[in-house]
Design a protein around this nucleic acid. Structure first.
Lengths: 202, 202
DNA sequence: CATTTGAGATACCGAAGGTATTTGGGACTT
DNA sequence: AAGTCCCAAATACCTTCGGTATCTCAAATG
């Protein structure tokens, strides 16, 4: 590896730390992941972490926002592709299983949200904004799906998106605690909603 | 206060610690509550805590199980009383608002569940058992309500209870993070389900 | 009354987030 | 090219907190 300029070197350090932090936060959660472990696993000292991120909160928030952005992108891409109604529902179910069913991710997002809610109003607002990102994406998907199928939703798309997100959050959390729980509740609920929309809207 | 026997004295200490721990855990959450603060607020030293409870986890678990037992009792009592269908739904909505809408409680239960899931399989199992207690209560209420109204539920009561609990958990968590969220999603969802049961079952 | 016992106090340990200080090598000046 | 500056990263250290080891003193026991 050739000599790096100062800026390049710092950017590389930051990326290495971020990637390592992502792996550890997702694997062990917020509280169990120490900055010392992150630094060492990335080949640096704690000083490198504090030089690139203000606090543990900021590092974790950065990781979470990156993961969430990827997940939103993934479901948007998958869902907006071609395919029959049934195909799209299957794609969504698979994506949901992959995302909600990942205890590492589910627990991390909830753990950090709780931490933020308790400790710092400013951070709490940023976390709340993340929730709104999810609702926005879900709402868009619901409206698009209703349009494609030509049916009316049984309640405003925004409220429905809100309820579905809550359902997903709760389900993910509960499954992480009790793996015996059925993974079918979310698709089941959505199926129900679609039936209702069928019966109601057309 | 008269002389206390050793057992009486210890029991009193334990209860004082429990009551104090309950107040602080609900107010500040699991991580932000230190055993030192609990001990001092109750008028003891940390030694008293460790003499009465094995670990912080055990103390918190005891608090949580006590609160949950009271809440389950409250909704059972309120719901099983007399009143019209609409009355009962209103009673439930009020109870849900009071319970789910209490960030202290919602955040504590979720925070501790996550902590348990990450750290200790044994504790995780105990927490999962707490979830099953909720599902059992909800399931009973749903079946009872369907019986009283004489309608068929759109899915098995157990699955429905599961979904409703997840919805409640997710909603409570999200509202604690974002107080701007509508508190009506849960009653709204239940109303929808009842409509569906109406349309479906009779 | 002497002895034992154990609830609760005290002292201490290690881990972890965060801060203050130091250092070493790239970057700018002359 | 040499000297200086700057700042990313390392190191040392602080405080807090869960947990453990030890001590103490009053109730229990004979």
């Amino acid at each position: 590896m050739a000599r790096l300029t100062r800026a390049e070197s710092q950017a590389r350090t930051r990326e290495l730390l971020l990637a390592t932090a992502r792996r550890l936060f997702l694997r062990d959660g917020y509280h169990a992941t120490t900055l010392e472990k992150v630094a060492e696993a990335a080949g640096f000292s704690k000083g490198a972490v504090y030089s690139n991120f203000g606090t543990k909160d900021e590092l974790c928030q950065t990781v979470i926002e990156a993961v969430r952005a990827e997940q939103v992108q993934a479901i948007m891409d998958a869902f907006l592709g071609e395919g029959s109604d049934a195909d799209r529902l299957a794609v969504f179910a698979e994506w949901a299983e992959h995302t909600i069913g990942d205890p590492g991710w589910t627990l991390l997002e909830a753990e950090f949200a709780i931490h933020a809610a308790r400790r710092d109003p400013g951070l709490r607002d940023r976390v709340a904004e993340g929730g709104r990102k999810w609702v926005g994406a879900l709402r868009f998907l619901l409206e698009e799906e209703a349009r494609r199928r030509g049916l009316a939703l049984p309640m405003p798309a925004g409220e429905l998106a809100d309820a579905l997100l809550s359902l997903g959050v709760g389900l993910g959390l509960r499954r992480a605690v009790d793996p015996a729980l059925s993974p079918h509740a979310l698709p089941g609920m959505i199926g129900l909603l679609l039936e209702m929309a069928d019966a109601d809207g057309r």
